[in-house]
């Protein structure tokens, strides 16, 4: 379905804009049309770029000061009047400082609030652990009724924000600091919540990635192809509900799967995929890339992605390991490698 609809402004008009600015712009366009949309932040209007909404629509913008839990509950309360509150703060504060408010006020009560969580993963590298967020996918996935999306780039973020506003129910959208390079070439591609995008087909192995890791996965697949390895890449932008069909299809077709995410290997995309594989009862060589149960060090984002093995180099290493891995064959499968 769904090409980008009704957005007078497209990202193509603004090559210089960062990922975060683009969501701010898209949200503003939506807000100008849909009077039920209100925006909130907790002293991070400028850092998260939701301030763009404030510039155009100040009468529907609220800055609650540095008070994230308060912000979530206020937003949940606003839905009682039929409003669609969109709140934005850093992922670490949205998912952890305010966690119980998100769970009890947004999810348990089925409140139509959208969270746009910025600076996720280690994208705020130099700020250290207090500002890194490698736990939010795990936390948000565990809340019943929550939809969890990690767009690959600015184009996908724009699509995700528009889709989230159209969707009735709580949504958590996780993006980076805003300087991530583009994955797509335009905003014009099929985007549906809960539906993986098969960016590249392959027979030998599948990489399932989410968020910024998708671009790295594509680079790694390209390099692997040069060595005669045929790699499928799934852009799993929606971590919950997971596109289980796409995972099962990858499992049956390639029997070798690597997951990549700018997140802990505990509880995120990797575990969601592992769950599908385990339930299938099929043999599979499998590896999860992400932060291995550690707090990441301080540093530049690119360096950290490299150090923790979630960039294209790390994925290439993982491909070599997974291609070598043995697994028990079953009647549906004979390993041809």
């Amino acid at each position: 379905m769904a090409k980008a609809q009704g957005l007078t402004w497209t990202i193509d008009d603004a090559d210089h804009m960062t990922q975060a600015e683009i969501y701010g712009e898209v949200l503003t366009q939506i807000g100008l049309k849909n009077k039920r949309v209100v925006a909130l932040t907790a002293d991070l209007a400028r850092s998260t770029k939701i301030g763009k909404f404030e510039e155009k629509i100040p009468e529907r913008f609220y800055n609650v000061g540095i008070a994230e839990a308060n912000m979530i509950a206020v937003a949940a309360g606003m839905t009682e009047a039929g409003l669609i509150p969109v709140v934005s703060t850093f992922a670490t504060f949205a998912s952890m400082r305010a966690a119980e408010f998100v769970r009890t006020d947004m999810c348990y009560q089925k409140r139509n609030v959208k969270i746009i969580a910025t600076h996720s993963g280690t994208s705020f590298g130099q700020a250290g652990t207090t500002h890194h967020c490698t736990e939010d996918l795990a936390i948000m996935r565990s809340f019943a009724g929550m939809t969890v999306i990690a767009p690959a780039d600015a184009f996908e973020t724009a699509r995700a924000v528009a889709a989230a506003i159209d969707f009735d129910g709580p949504v958590y959208i996780r993006i980076g600091r805003g300087f991530e390079p583009p994955m797509h070439k335009s905003m014009d591609f099929d985007f549906e919540i809960g539906k993986a995008i098969k960016l590249r087909d392959g027979r030998d192995l599948t990489i399932i990635a989410t968020g910024v890791a998708v671009l790295q996965a594509m680079e790694a697949a390209e390099r692997a192809a040069g060595n005669g390895v045929s790699v499928r890449v799934l852009d799993m932008h929606t971590v919950k509900p997971l596109d289980e069909d796409a995972v099962r299809e990858a499992l049956m077709d390639t029997r070798r799967i690597i997951t990549v995410e700018d997140h802990s290997v505990i509880g995120g995309l990797g575990d969601a995929v592992a769950d599908v594989i385990a339930r299938s009862g099929k043999g599979c060589a499998f590896k999860k890339l992400g932060y291995q149960d550690c707090f990441a060090m301080v540093g530049y984002y690119e360096d950290l992605q490299h150090h923790y093995g979630i960039d294209a180099d790390g994925i290439i290493d993982a491909i070599a390991l997974v291609l070598k891995a043995e697994f028990e064959a079953d009647e549906d499968w004979e390993d041809e490698i």
Binding site: T129, T130, M297
Partner: peptide
Amino acid sequence: FNKTGSPFGMHLD
């Protein structure tokens, strides 16, 4: 300060 792998980030550990 603020460099990759440094003990010193923006917020002290």
